[in-house]
């Protein structure tokens, strides 16, 4: 089998960076994408500086992937932003930016990746949602709504892309210790974690385990599913 090509968005840091190293170590050709150039390098990894909301930039990245690697097997749609704000105090620019990156950006990546995958009639897409959706977390109305949109997107795309042998699933991590939650007050995180069946922070390894499962060739009969971590459903 040819070397698997895995595209990871938001790969500059946090979960995305961990997954980049994880899949490069497994022998994948990893292509990363984020808004700035990372200050690290891994063998088997190439990076593109692009914003997932920029249609021209995303198309350009996909063109390079087709030309340089001949196709795309996996998309790990990890890029996302968070904002903790009481609904009554949430400014519209923050609303628009959250929806643009978390939902529209995820859609754009899925659409363009699926165009490449459909040529070879094979693909695995893993989107990222959050436990804030089933927990209906106060103070995260727009963030949770954007990620609920990702769940719906995942379910619909699963049906539309099934004829091309492309599966689309989502993982919903519990809080992971990354920059994404660094601005959230500690007591808020502790209260959230206490609502999980397994009350601890989520690790990078926990997330990678679910992504591994969805990416497996043997997981071809699993699509449209969202798997939340920590026991929140």
């Amino acid at each position: 089998m040819d070397r698997l090509v895995t595209l990871i968005t938001g790969s500059g840091r946090g979960i995305g960076r961990y997954l980049a190293g994880h899949y490069a170590a497994l022998g994948h050709q990893v292509v990363g994408l984020s808004r700035s150039k990372p200050d690290w390098d891994i063998s088997g990894y190439v990076h593109f500086v692009a914003d997932v909301t920029d249609e021209d930039a995303v198309k350009s990245v996909m063109k390079s992937i087709r030309k340089d690697f001949g196709g795309l097997d996996h998309l790990i749609n990890n890029a996302g932003i968070a904002s903790m704000n009481a609904a009554l105090l949430t400014p519209m620019p923050a609303v628009n930016r959250l929806l643009s990156v978390n939902l529209a950006g995820a859609f754009l990546m899925c659409r363009e990746a699926a165009k490449i995958m459909s040529r070879k009639k094979y693909g695995r897409i893993v989107n990222f949602t959050t436990v804030a959706v089933p927990l209906a977390l106060e103070g995260e109305a727009v963030y949770a709504a954007s990620k609920a949109g990702v769940v719906a997107l995942t379910r619909v795309l699963a049906r539309e892309l099934a004829p091309y042998n492309i599966t689309v699933n989502a993982v919903g991590p519990a809080p992971v210790d990354t920059d994404l939650i660094r601005s959230v007050p500690r007591e808020k995180i502790e209260a959230l974690v206490a609502r999980q069946a397994i009350p601890r922070m989520c690790s990078f390894e926990d997330v990678a385990n679910v992504v591994d499962f969805f990416l497996k060739k043997e997981s071809g009969f699993i699509t449209g599913e969202t798997l939340y971590l920590g026991g929140v459903s």
């Binding site: 198309k59 030309k67 040529r119």
Partner: peptide
């Protein structure tokens, strides 16, 4: 599928998206 393939062929050959 056909239109997707044509988009890619146009982009590859003519550098037009």
């Amino acid at each position: 599928s056909f239109l997707t393939a044509l988009e890619q062929n146009i982009e590859d050959r003519l550098d037009i998206s």
